[in-house]
Every structure is written in structure tokens, then in C-alpha cells.
Design a protein around this nucleic acid. Sequence first.
DNA 1: GTGATATTTGTAATCGATTACAAAATATAA
DNA 2: TTATATTTTGTAATCGATTACAAATATCAC
Lengths: 331, 331
Amino acid sequence: MAQIKDVAHQAGVSVASVSRVLAGHAGVSESIRQRVLAAAQALDYRPDLAARRLRSRRTDTIGLIVSDVRNPFFTEISRAVEDVAYQNHFRVILCNTDENPEKEAFYLDLMRDENVMGVILSPTLALLADFRSADYLFPIVLVDRCDRDTAADAVVLDNVDAAYRLTTHLIENGHPRNVLFYGAASATGCQRREGYMAAMAAHGLEPQVEAVTATVDHARSAAHKFFCRPPHPEALIASNGLILLGLLEALREVKIKVPEQIALTGFDDLPWTRLVEPGITVIAQPTYDIGQAAIELLLQRIAQPAQAVRRVVLRGELCERDSSKKRNARR
Amino acid sequence: MAQIKDVAHQAGVSVASVSRVLAGHAGVSESIRQRVLAAAQALDYRPDLAARRLRSRRTDTIGLIVSDVRNPFFTEISRAVEDVAYQNHFRVILCNTDENPEKEAFYLDLMRDENVMGVILSPTLALLADFRSADYLFPIVLVDRCDRDTAADAVVLDNVDAAYRLTTHLIENGHPRNVLFYGAASATGCQRREGYMAAMAAHGLEPQVEAVTATVDHARSAAHKFFCRPPHPEALIASNGLILLGLLEALREVKIKVPEQIALTGFDDLPWTRLVEPGITVIAQPTYDIGQAAIELLLQRIAQPAQAVRRVVLRGELCERDSSKKRNARR
DNA sequence: GTGATATTTGTAATCGATTACAAAATATAA
DNA sequence: TTATATTTTGTAATCGATTACAAATATCAC
């Protein structure tokens, strides 16, 4: 394995010159430049990253900490982050917290050990509660979850607005008695609940919410239990894709027909929502864009650590499908 | 930021002793051990990984190179790999090749630069063709794709067998005239084709195959074109989940009913396959297990570089659903 | 040509750990 | 007790780059 002194020797120059050429620094003569480049090529020289990082204190690495990359929302975000990171010659370390604050703390420590240049984080509710960027040695951009008053760079959906519009859509399509199943342990769930409450209030309707853990299995069993005690509502809203899937499975189990007996809507435009019969009305999140915006924000922050805190708010798109078909106010 | 000499000073010992205690080496007195541990704790000392890696030449990092983490098959593998890696105090660098050999070569170079201790790789067909582990400075475990004669550690599904069983299932359920849509650019696609051909031959039936690019969009348009020239076959087989989804979308577009007019089957038990009406008969791959086996194999290889080349072959499970319902041989 | 200034190049210090080797301390055998 | 073997500890070299600083060289005005 060739190292810098071999290249220097081969080119007949000092190691400093080699380093300068390879780092693209100015103030080096064209003749040396050529000789170094040729020598490096000839020896197939690759700088040792460990040595470089030790001396330069840069790692060109960022961390991506999400609850579970298997959640399609985060899968897409990961892909976006990696695309942009690699275009900018950054590496990505991926971590899954499973919404577990201990794992989250472990990975944040790991990020410090790795001396990453920045982190994209989807924080647990516990961490978000009193989150302060200043507590960390590296810049952090929050994704997906962020309170109104959190002083941190963030990229989020306008959850309140999206839930408001989804709820309003249901009401206007003749489903005033609807109930929200939301993930109480997440900031997004709470914000979507807020939008739901606002929409119901605006129409003078009685809201009804069910707090669940945001997993398919838990949502399914919670919904199953819910349907054992009539009367059934006219419509359901799921605060995310996992809960939505759980609700659908429960409805299948208890043989309640969508949309004849009940309307079903939710968040996240997953592949299956337009494949099932009927198609499910959802708020589609621009997931790739969210990831892209997050990594771009992070790279900017790394380049200019002092710039003002920025928040990017993206709008969800309502995809109307047959699961929330119009119906007469009274049947 | 405290460093090792601060800890040494605080504990009143040499840096060597601190290093030894923290590395868990034997031959250090209990009294020093205690003092060092206390000092490290007090100063919240975290070893600098760049320095450690430079000197020790270990990075405790592995690479995971797949075509696209958004493919649910690879999403699940990623998660398994990360789980086991982190349990063993390894980090994971994730890379997406998009089946592009240049990107693949780029990332393999990156792995060398990063001095990773090993790589889990889902190779492009081009790379697999003359793949030799010995060409790389680090151990490599192949996942998902591997030829019969590839001399490399690998974890794969028994594709020939699985395709054989799926095809046989169709034939036995009264669908002798079936056609396989397969990803011609992938080793798995070719092996599944092989199993299909064998099953058809075993039953004295005429095989029919359509080579497609393994993406939803391409499969959809290829299928769309296919259905414009009757006669239609009695059944379809998709060689992976993306193609399967493309076929289903095409069938919806041209309004061919499953299973009344045509049976539909494929590989990969994605969430939607049991949600759509009718449920789709598929070969379920033990994806998490595949990822887990791959990382475990890699960790073993790292620990014992000279051990014999090993191949883990897992069996796919046939999930029978209504999309391939039994029908009379002649209608 | 001289001196002042700007540019290019090289030498050596440095990043912060690990670890080979030597020295010191302790245990064991005679 | 002494000599020897063993264990514990410390000193200093080392990993392979980057970069501060000094030295050498080139450029320019007069």
C-alpha cells in the first residue's frame, strides 16, 4: 500500500507538496502538480483516511438517526440523505433507535466518538421535549418531528394543516362522526391530533381520539378492541402509515366494509394505499424532498456554523381515493 | 475534550496503563484499574477514534452495498445487518448502487479508503460474472446473488428450488399456460428462470418468459405491451417484488381480473400482497434472516480470515393465497 | 545589480491514540 | 539471602497524513 512519502519520493518532491497538490491547494507550480499527479496515479496512491482525519479533525461523515429504517417514510429519507451526502463526498452512518431513548442516547454518543460533522435526527418525544442544539458538539438537523418552539434546524411537514385538511375533507364528504387513531408517543402524532381537533371544532363537531403505539400490531389490536363496543363511527383517520395499516387489518378481521360501512383515511402514501380496494385517501408526504432538504440544510450549517436557525416546512398533499367517498349526511 | 494523557495525569499513571485498562488487556493491577476507570469517568474521557484507528489499523466498520435500500428486500436486510453490527460494536456504512457497475466500483473503492473490516455486497451481474474475493483487501460476503461456482462467502435463497415449487404450484392448480416475467439483469432473476424452466420441462409444458428490467415502471409497461397481443396466458409469475407490483398495476390498467381471468404470483412477501383483493400467492423470502446470516458470516470471517469459504442457502416459503386459486384444467 | 516582496518548496511538529521494549517491582526457587 | 522468573509499569516509537514555519527561489521596481 503506497503512502504519501512513496509518492513524494517517486515524484522527487517533499511530502508537503504531495499533500498540497492532492488537497487542491493553491500556490504550487504546474510542473510539480503534474509530477505528483503522475506519481500518485502510477502508485495507485490512496490517502489513509484515519491519518487524514486525525490530523485535519474533519471526518466528512454524517449520522442519520431514525426510529426504524423499515418504516417506508424513513427508508425514503435515508435514500435521499445518502444520495446528496455522497454527491458531496460525505459518508453516512445509519442508526435505528426503535423510539427508545436509551438507544438514541447511545447513538448520539457514538456520533460524538465518530466525530461526525453533523447529524440528521428524528428525535424521540422524550429528547425533543427539551432539545437544545447547543448541547451537542456537532450540528443537528431534526426531521419529521419538531415542536413549534424548538430552537433547532428542522425539516417537517405542516402536520396541523395536513390533519386539518384531511379531517375537513371527511366532514365535507359526509363523515362528521369520525375518530382519530394517533401515535401519542410522537410529536407528529400530537400535532396531527391538534389539526384534527381544530377541524372538528371549526365545524362544531365532537372530536374523538384514540391514543395508540405507532406500530401495525398495536394499532390493529387497539382497533379490534375499539370495534367491539358499538356504535361504530362513520370514518377513521390514522396518524401515520403504520397505524393506517393496522386499522385496515382490523377492519378486515371484523368484516367492516370500506367505504360502505366506514370511511378510512390516514397519513403516508405507501404503495399499497392505491392497490387495495377501495384505494385509501391519504395525506402524501413529500418524503424524498424532506430528506433532501434535511441534508442540504445540514451541509449548509456545517459550512456556516453561525447562520441563523432555519426551519423548512413542507406541505402534505391530499390524495382523494374511494375509501372516503362522498355519502349523504344521513342514511 | 479530555484525552488520554489527561486521564493518565489525573490517575497518576502512564498513558500506556490507561490504554491497557481501557482496552481490557490483562496484566494490570486492580488498584491501577480502579484509578484509571475513576479518572476516565470523572473526565468523561472518550478515546479519539481517528487516532485509535490510525495506530491500531482497525476501524470496526463494515460496508453494506445494495442496489437500493428502498427495495423492501434490502430495507429489511439493512436493518438486520445494522442490528447485529451494532451489537458487536461495529458501524455500518450504507451504499446504493442502483445496479450501476460504476457506482458499485466507486463504493468498493470507498470501502478500501475507509479501510473497512469487511463488506456485505449485493453485486451487479457484471461484477458477479468474474468475482473473486482475493481481488479485495477486505473480506466480502455476497447476499442475494451468487452463481453456483462463485468462490466467495455468500447468503442466498435457493432460487431454483423456490421458482420450481412456485411454478409447480401453479401447474397443479390448473394453470399450465403461465409466463414468467423475470429480471434478466440479475443473477436471482436468471436462477428463478432456471427453476421455472425445469418445472415446466418436468411437466412437459412449453415455457414462456419475458425479460424485463427489474423496476416497477418498466415491468408495468412491458406487461402492458404484452397484454396487447392475445392470447393471454392463464397465469403470471414475477421474479421479484418490484416486477410483481408492475404486473399488478398493468393488469388493473387493462382490466384483466385476478384470479378469474388470470392467476398472479411472484417473489417477495411484501405488506401489500396480502392486503389486495385477492391476496397474492408468493414465495416469501426470510429477509431478516438473510441479512443476519450475512453479517454473522462476515464477522466470523473477520475473526478468522483463513476459514473455508462458506455458503448459506435459505429456503423460500410458499404462501398460497387466492390469486392462484385452483381451477379446472379446461373451462 | 540591488533590495524588497511574493511565491514556491521543504523540514519538522503535530494530531491522539496503541504498543514494542526496557525498566522496575514482585513472586518463586534454591 | 540471592538468583531467577514473572508480572507490572513507564518511556518512547509509531501509525500516515496535514500544516506551521522557515528556507529557497522567483518577481519586480528602482
